[in-house]
Design a protein around this nucleic acid. Structure first.
Lengths: 193, 193, 193, 193
DNA sequence: AGTTAAACGAGACGGTACGTCGAGTCTTTGT
DNA sequence: ACAAAGACTCGACGTACCGTCTCGTTTAACT
């Protein structure tokens, strides 16, 4: 009746991903080894390799399994308020322990392994970007943004500085900082060129 | 007169860094091994470990040895023109082969190894940022920017989107894109909040 | 039927020991390295370390694997003849190439490594000594030796001078010399104290 | 007047040998390294290599520097008594700490390194053997031993069992055991062949 | 006394091997 | 049939010494 093979497989898959995150939190991604995950999960290494092609792929899946799309956009009709709400939620999830350090490491892995980069983009970055773009497009269509508003660039200006501070400068992101970015985007920098 | 010991040591140091970059270009940072660098450079492993504490540290120094600060700011009196010139030069150097892939990998390593992150910040990111800030400050003092202009945020908005596209979305940076970012910073996004 | 795991493991074990002896004969024990044995045998170093704790232990086992107990005692009823036969066989095996130099080196290793010494005693020296003692005891019980005959000392007088010449003075052992030792033991030195 | 160069050189030489023995006692010969001796003695490695060609050679000299020929034979006219006295002294020196373990290790090294073996023979084994032979010869000439007494064999029977027990069986030598060997040599084994 | 040459400490250097670890593959056994 | 268990080859890790080789710096012998 029930697909026992499937359910058993699912069990292992989840157990492995759970262990991966557990170990990742304990010792960090850099020191994580498939060997150790297998041992801790009580699973043969084969069983891991059968499902994932590399440590990065396993790690990506493990991390994504956490984020059951908590980062969806609300639509209250107020684009600024909606963006604020979503981005505040995003930094809360992605820049704070326990996920923060792991997400940082995942991006590090992606920069060293193109396959992980592609998968990360396909399964997380692009979908999220598209949600943002879609919300912005709605706002533009509703006249909250001018017709010539550059959605892609806006998206990058919303994300870029945050990633830059989180990954490159490595300072914790604050809600105040997010607000400054959003304000700059919508009300300008008071420049006088 | 000359410090012969020093010059000998310098020889090795440079030979090792040269070999590191060479091998890095050939096989990529991820597959690089200290063993291979030592062999190719005709040098004992100890001689490498004596100078650098990890593969990342060696790689960082090797890459920085290339950038004989070509990224200094001009000061023509026109802040926008000067920023354009510098940022165009920067993406030309840092986002194109041969340095581009290596720089990406270096940041990847930094995300996995806090020591490398700290060194990268100290020796490259922060000094570069400070040059940008200094140039912006001059412009503000000269009245080219309004007194309330947020220099730090401007810096992040200039860098963030570029890093975001280069590292996360992994699309090649174009001069046209740089110009759009600069324009958005100084003339606004035409938003209508 | 057959223990397949065992047979595979046995294959490697024997291949490693064979290679060890081969290399030992070529370059000598002192220059032997586990690295070289592994490479020559087409085996990972781990596979050697899994089985033996040190170069000495590997070497001991390798050498003992040769001696398919050819050194058993005959019992013709004539104790002198039997000892002669066995000891002549022993020096032929242990003091001549190819085993001679390796056996000498093994004892050298045993003198530097107590674990090897213990293993050598347990697996070779003591068993051989006990065979000799047993044969002597039979002879004494049969009245071929006087009741007060000191078996242990006899054992040492049979072995000691041979080891002394072989290891310390480092002269090749001859059958004539063996006969002089045996004769001295049984018929005395013609001393006149 | 005094050879000052010589005296300085002698100082170093002695300091190095002293340190060698000191370290040898602490960590054992097997773990001894020229590097460590140099460091401990506050001496450059060159200064050691200038004097000795190998660790074994250094160790041999260091050990021999201790034995300012305390093992000379007395000649009281009683060959048995004189042998006893000398051999008892020998085992006391060579089989007991602190020299015992080092002497054992030296012989181990000699078995692995022919140059050390040759030097050990030339500088210690052979001279000692000749003293024994000389003393025995005097006894034979004086008629204390029969004219056909085999001096070389006697020498081996006096030494062999002791070395055998000390090196191979690795049991501590006792004076009682020495006496049994001497008695066996001179009064026979009470065999009845 | 000043010069010169050897010996020296210090330690960098190219090597070789160590013993360990993990990757990814392959085999055996159990269920 | 599939999975745990783990043995296997391979490659690299970071360390320790080897014996050689500069480097200045004593030191003492000979101008």
């Amino acid at each position: 009746m029930t697909d026992k093979r499937g359910s058993r497989a699912t069990d292992r898959t989840e157990a492995i991903m759970r262990t991966t995150l557990e170990l990742g939190k304990e010792i960090g991604y850099a020191k994580l080894s498939i060997e150790a995950v297998a041992a801790r999960a009580g699973v043969g290494k084969h069983t891991i390799y059968r499902r994932w092609s590399s440590k990065g792929a396993l790690f990506l899946d493990s991390l994504l399994s956490l984020n059951k799309s908590d980062l969806d956009y609300p639509d209250t009709g107020d684009i600024v308020a909606d963006l604020r709400r979503q981005i505040h939620a995003a930094i809360e999830l992605l820049d704070r322990p326990p996920v923060g350090p792991l997400y940082r490491a995942l991006i590090g892995e992606a920069l060293l392994n193109p396959q992980v980069a592609a998968a990360l983009n396909d399964h997380f970055i692009t979908p999220q970007a598209e949600k943002t773009l879609a919300r912005l497009k709605v706002a533009r269509d509703q006249g909250q943004l001018s017709p010539g508003f550059d959605l892609d660039l806006a998206m990058d200006i919303l994300s870029g500085p945050l990633y830059f501070r989180a990954l490159i400068v490595q300072e914790p992101l604050t809600h105040e900082y997010v607000d400054r970015v959003i304000e700059a985007l919508f009300t300008g920098m008071e420049s006088r060129p």
